[in-house]
Design a protein around this nucleic acid. Sequence first.
DNA 1: CCTGCAGTACGACTTTAGTCGAACTTAGCA
DNA 2: TGCTAAGTTCGACTAAAGTCGTACTGCAGG
Lengths: 125, 125
Amino acid sequence: MSSTAGAAPAIKVLPAPPGLPEPLPEPTVEELRLETVLGALSDPLRLTIVRKLLLESEQFDHSCGWFGFDRPKSSLTHHFKALREAGVTRQRQYGLERRSHVRVDDLNACFPGLLDLVAAWAPEA
Amino acid sequence: MSSTAGAAPAIKVLPAPPGLPEPLPEPTVEELRLETVLGALSDPLRLTIVRKLLLESEQFDHSCGWFGFDRPKSSLTHHFKALREAGVTRQRQYGLERRSHVRVDDLNACFPGLLDLVAAWAPEA
DNA sequence: CCTGCAGTACGACTTTAGTCGAACTTAGCA
DNA sequence: TGCTAAGTTCGACTAAAGTCGTACTGCAGG
């Protein structure tokens, strides 16, 4: 408000902040395990989440709401957490929202080709 | 049974038969589902089975015993069945033994690169 | 014929996942 | 200051997986 802050931006910038919030707890690259990752991806809803992030997100993280799933919030929390704890996604807290993106580089380094399979997946043919 | 069936072979041929036994029930190529296959591969023992088949079997099918797992037989049956029903392996009955091999062509066609990940897998680093 | 052996089938038990309602937490905003 | 909205946490329920003992099937060899 006060002019002291300098010109407050008239435009409301979406959070693409200079200093990113810390990621929520997640396995390191060395801790990534194939069987765990495959387990996380063996669920249709989670496959949908990852695929959507891969194909439709243009370099932004996305909040749970962005996906538009018609499920109780607690179910979504469950699945997003499963993906993060398996090391498939990274989550950061932006104010109220918890946004996710796929750890593309890590996964491609550890399991090359895996994400291509997810991207090519067709939900229930 | 009657002797009318002609001369029974004097030499006992190991089963590399001209007419192979029918494969046990399994999904068709069209029925292969990524989430199901990933689920089947999300278990360390099954990953071990598939990897061993990929790396150490030289174009032969292998019976359960060949793997040398120290587990009850009923557990092994369970896992081999899970792999077959997911479409990862094919099983044929040769006399007493039920032998398995990986459906390499089918899997490479549907999920290219997936088997490479399994082959590269290192059991519990 | 009888015994041994490969593997299955069945069933009980335990663990883990998924599903969801309800209460709670917290940032942003008026 | 107090509302609202995004998302979590907790707890209960249910369904599915993994584990394993025991009994069974069916070929093979003495």
